[in-house]
């Protein structure tokens, strides 16, 4: 089942790459062939938002007593880590696209700035998760941190509409809800979003299973340490 998932993801990424690199036309107003970066930049940004949304949702489910389960905590962590990878990629790809079209690697524009903040907020979240405390304590603290950090996601998303900035408005979901591109470009963008969403799902699944393994090993180590301690105390107690 997982194999099939992976195969589908790889095939759809491959098809997207072919369309993005060879089928779609270059655009003079978007840096000629540099416009091909759109098919990576926009989907990675969308996945970053999705990933942090999943983290926030899982955190809420953990905080709500009726649905509290270790699964949500681990899912939140897995999704945030994948999200950080995608946010980092979004920034790098945007920078690579900005250089030929805007003439600069970085601009202190609202969208770029809020995305960079997002990256650091979730790096902090991941650091908070690794501080080695009990699973419950980690779940509670990281869930609250995730909800606070998520406040930046809508700000970042809407920043291009709120402030008139250098960054262009949404290609698909803009104010007039009119798709600004057509034909093969629109198809490629949709294909890219679909295949990156599949990739996101697959990575989160793998990362979640890894997190379960890590958690299991920690629990075993704790058990063994307690067992050793008990044995040692028996030895000490025996002569008395």
């Amino acid at each position: 089942m997982k194999r099939l998932f992976l195969a589908t993801t790889v095939v759809s990424l491959g098809v997207t790459a072919v369309f993005a690199l060879w089928v779609t036309p270059p655009r003079a107003d978007q840096g000629f062939d540099a416009v091909r970066l759109l098919y990576l930049h926009a989907p990675t940004a969308w996945i970053a938002y999705l990933a942090f949304g999943v983290t926030a949702l899982a955190s809420l489910l953990w905080l709500f007593p009726r649905t509290r389960s270790a699964t949500w905590d681990l899912l939140a962590g897995a999704s945030a880590e994948v999200g950080v990878v995608f946010t980092g990629l979004t920034l790098v790809l945007g920078s690579l696209w900005g250089r030929p079209t805007w003439g600069t690697w970085w601009e202190w524009d609202a969208r770029l700035t809020t995305t960079a903040i997002l990256f650091f907020l979730y790096l902090g979240y991941l650091a908070l998760r690794r501080t080695g405390t009990t699973a419950d304590e980690r779940g509670k603290r990281s869930a609250i941190a995730a909800l606070i950090a998520f406040a930046d996601v809508p700000v970042s998303y809407l920043s291009v509409t709120w402030w008139q900035t250098l960054h262009q408005q949404g290609t698909v979901f803009n104010e007039r809800l009119s798709v600004k591109i057509d034909g093969s470009m629109a198809f490629t963008l949709v294909a890219a979003v679909v295949s990156f969403t599949l990739l996101y799902g697959y990575l989160v699944l793998e990362r979640f299973e890894l997190a379960q393994l890590e958690e299991g090993r920690e629990a075993r180590e704790l058990e063994r340490a307690i067992a050793e301690r008990v044995r040692a105390e028996h030895v000490e107690v025996a002569p008395v």
Binding site: A17, L21, P26, G31, F32, D33, A34, R36, L37, L40, H41, T44, L89, V92, L93, L96, W97, R99, P100
Partner: peptide, 13 residues
Amino acid sequence: HNWGFVTAGYSIT
């Protein structure tokens, strides 16, 4: 045509 940027972007990703 800025293929260098495209190559870099796809490789890094």
